[in-house]
Amino acid sequence: MIAELIAAFLKIVLVLGTISLVVAYLTYLERKIIGHIQMRMGPMRVGWHGLLQPIADGLKLFLKEDIIPSKADKIVFVIAPIMVLVPAFVVYSVLPFDENFYITQVNVGLFLVLAVSSLGVFGIVMAGWASNSKYSLLGAFRSAAQMLSYEIFLGFSLIGPLMLAGSLNFQNIVKAQSDVWFVFYQPLAFIVFFIAALAETNRIPFDLPEAETELVAGFHTEYSGMKFAFFFLAEYANIMAVSTVCIAVFFGGWGGIDAIPLPGIVWYLLKMAVLIFVFIWIRATLPRYRYDQLMRVGWKFMFPLAILNIFVTGLVKFLFL
């Protein structure tokens, strides 16, 4: 009992520590990749090719004055960044990293991930409302509408692969893909999932909640110092979580090509690296959607597509399997 507890605790510390560190370096990676795509060098000053930049940034944020606006609702204002960060990290408790390396394994795994990640929107709405600023409130409004609608497509796009796997447990979903990855059976679901994931993580082209050019910084306009860093950390932690779900459901999790014997965790990290590169690549390439376009794309294009995918999957499964 005690040994189990200690082992679980160590695993949690390991996963959380790694994620916090990787998240810090994701910001560096993002700036560097976007810099090179735009024919710049990106951060170069701190350390060799700017490698120490995230640490300098972290120190700067840590030492900055923590401003709470005088007209803000103080309690909600303080809780909001925590409410964003906690769901982003709780999700990792059920995500699969390797066949034998996961924090815990629950029967409703995928469903739990969807449920917990849907809570992030509370932090954003709370932040927007508590700041008592019009830009924050507008950002929060947009974010609530956007995340609420794209959550639906995210869930619906996952139903197709789930029907093939026949389980909500991540381990079983990955094991069901030992022959063929679901992305080949479910290309439509993958497209819908990926677009919805971009919208859920508030990335370009769906970064309306924090559209810099119109809303200053959206819902976190009034935040500074560590509280601002929390929103930042949560965004990147969410990107990694969504990539992990994508890998587990569409790209066979830790499974790789049999000809190249590599441990599962290496395959997982490779896939993760590719997906995160794609995320950053999209940010460097695409412009932002307008709000009405965002809603039109969601409800008139992606929603029917997701429903169609479920229908076709069900029909094929009923007729041939």
């Binding site: 449920a115 849907s118 809570l119 929107v121 509370f122 709405v125 409302w129 409130l137 929060a140 409004f141 609530a144 509408a145 609420l148 959550e151």
Partner: peptide
């Protein structure tokens, strides 16, 4: 994640 966001939205 659903109903309470709807509530918050309407309250605002």
């Amino acid at each position: 994640g659903g109903i309470m966001v709807l509530y918050l939205f309407s309250i605002m």
